[in-house]
Design a protein around this nucleic acid. Structure first.
Length: 515
RNA sequence: GGCGCUAUCGUCUAGGGGUUAGGACGUGAGAUUCUCAAUCUUAAAACACGGGUUCGAUUCCCGUUAGCGCUACCA
């Protein structure tokens, strides 16, 4: 399935961080292009000068690259006007295309396919309220549509500000949606859309107003010869207006694919309230790009066999089709993302993980409390699989890191989970056995010695598994789960022999015997 | 209010006129490895409702309900 004529685009506004919804749109566009041998265009929609910022554009590009998505055509370096970018259909920033839009408006006006509208905001508002009161569709009355030339000229001469509206022909506006099938809007439910905001008059035959989003998007898509518009379903209602624009210019209407919204657990549109939503935040939290990409691909799309869950980018390219994209909204599920992240963590090379993890982990060691929790806490649950290799760097740590292993035995005993474990009869037995062995060895407890003792206690008492290890773990670290004993015991020993005020293994255990 | 989109386990989804309605995440139980994680086994868990069409609808059609989007001279 290769069709080199296929051209798709991702057109974000640089008004904020790239979030998962847009990232998924970008991914699907990219997959479709790569799958079909088509072209993927990146276009920056920065007509909103108030909110657009260069730093967002820079971040956006970095995020896309991190995800592994590249583009065939797109703008040059953000903020560097000397860099034209790549592709023959540029410029690829809307702010650099304003004259193109103005020319097209002139054409439409000249051909009578658009007309100046002198209605004021107040008049429009009145119409709208009336329509709502009468339970009618809110459509523009078309009052200025039939103004005769003399009136128009007089109004312009009088300096009356006007917007430009497109004349919608009286027939249904329909388009083909690859995800939803044929979608049709009756002509009388769609207003003649404003394509250029109002401004007072013309100058040198140029319309002065600022063109509106729906209009410029359509012109850009047409001029860039986009064949498939893949975007969020919040644009469905805009589409009939855009179809009318294509028709007015006699351009071929592309196929559309409207992707469903991504919702939070409360079924509301995913937002900052729901926690992480921006790609860079996921990155900072230790998610791997392949996990995020895999998850996003699965959110609204499923493999043909209905079973495969894990895909590399290459596998995704082979398997992806727009026909299999689901039309219904999807709730973002962090649990499944976490599962995929763990999956890819296991596949990642130790060298890669160490490189990734160390910068995250190193700062933790600045705080004894934080480091302690990394060492003895249930670290695996917190996506900290990423930190495993970093923990292995502990060999290289100075003794200064050791004091983190001081803990309060009373607090450890008071912890409800620990208390429940220690309350069992087996716990007392185990600790007694363990203490007896520790007492006869006033010297260091080496990991291999430790192992021998465990085996002895196991055979002597018949106690095994959790019942055996939990009490010992609490006595040694204050917590019932954590890093392997081989890693923890040497730290304790180092700390106590170095005179850092760390109780030795012997002391620790004594404090728990008989409880 | 109008227009539009959507509706299968808690979640992501497969399926499709006759199925034990499949998979995955999560959850419960069990096994196992020194804990946790992982792994294995196993369990519970769904076709929103009402009408049609049909011998037969979860599947097709209509309606209802619910959710969401748009309803701007925002993008």
């Amino acid at each position: 399935m290769t069709d080199s004529n296929i051209r798709v685009r991702f057109a974000p506004s640089p008004t904020g961080l790239l979030h998962v919804g847009n990232a998924r749109t970008a991914l699907y566009n990219w997959l479709y292009a790569r799958r079909t041998g088509g072209v993927f265009v990146l276009r920056i929609e920065d007509t909103d000068v108030e909110r657009s910022e260069v730093r967002y554009e820079t971040q956006l590009i970095e995020d896309l690259r991190w995800l592994g998505l590249d583009w065939d055509e797109g703008p040059g370096t953000p903020g560097d006007s000397s860099d034209p970018g790549q592709g023959e259909f540029g410029p690829y920033r809307q702010s650099e295309r304003l004259s193109i839009y103005a020319q097209h408006t002139e054409q439409l006006l000249k051909e009578g396919k658009a007309y100046p509208c002198f209605c004021t905001a107040g008049e429009l508002e009145t119409e709208r309220k009336q329509a709502i009161a009468e339970h009618l569709p809110q459509v523009y009355s078309g009052r200025c549509r039939t103004l005769d030339k003399a009136t128009v000229d007089a109004n312009i001469a009088a300096g009356k500000p006007f917007a430009v509206r497109l004349k919608i022909e009286d027939h249904p506006l329909r388009f083909h949606d690859l995800v939803r099938g044929e979608v049709e809007f009756a002509a009388d439910t769609v207003s003649d859309p404003i394509i250029v905001r109002s401004a007072a008059g013309e100058e040198d035959g140029e319309v002065e107003g600022i063109p509106v989003y729906n209009y410029v998007v359509t012109i850009d898509d047409a001029l860039m010869e986009i064949t498939h518009v893949i975007r969020g379903d919040d644009h469905i209602s805009n589409t009939p207006k855009q179809v009318a624009i294509y028709e007015a210019f006699g351009w071929m209407v592309p196929d559309f694919a409207h992707l469903s919204t991504i919702l939070g657990a409360d079924r509301e549109r995913l937002s900052k309230r729901h926690g992480a939503t921006s790609i860079s935040t996921f990155r900072e939290m230790g998610y791997l790009p392949e996990a995020l990409v895999n998850y996003l691909a699965l959110l609204g799309w499923g493999a043909e066999d209905g079973k495969t869950e894990t895909f590399t980018l290459d596998e995704l390219i082979k398997a992806f089709t727009l026909e299999r994209v689901t039309p219904s909204p999807a709730i973002f599920d962090f649990d499944k993302l976490n599962w995929l992240n763990r999956h890819y963590l296991k596949l990642a090379s130790p060298a890669r993980l160490a490189t990734l993890a160390w910068p995250y982990f190193a700062p933790q060691l600045q705080s004894p409390e934080a480091a302690a929790s990394e060492l003895v806490g249930p670290w695996f649950e917190k996506l900290l699989a990423l930190f495993i290799p970093a923990v292995d760097h502990l060999d290289q740590l100075p003794a200064a890191a050791a004091p983190v292993l001081v803990f309060d035995p009373d607090a450890a005993r008071a912890n409800p989970e620990n208390a429940a474990i220690l309350a069992a009869g087996s716990a007392g037995t185990v600790l007694m056995e363990f203490a007896n062995r520790v007492r006869t060895h006033s010297s260091l407890v080496q990991p291999d010695v430790f192992k021998t003792w465990i085996d002895e206690i196991k055979t002597a008492t018949g106690i095994k598994g959790k019942e055996l290890f939990h009490p010992i773990r609490i006595a040694l670290t204050g917590a019932h789960s954590g890093r392997e004993f081989d890693k923890v015991i040497p730290l304790i020993e180092d700390g106590s022999t170095l005179g850092l005020g760390i109780p030795s293994v012997c002391e620790r255990v004594e404090r728990f015997v008989g409880v």
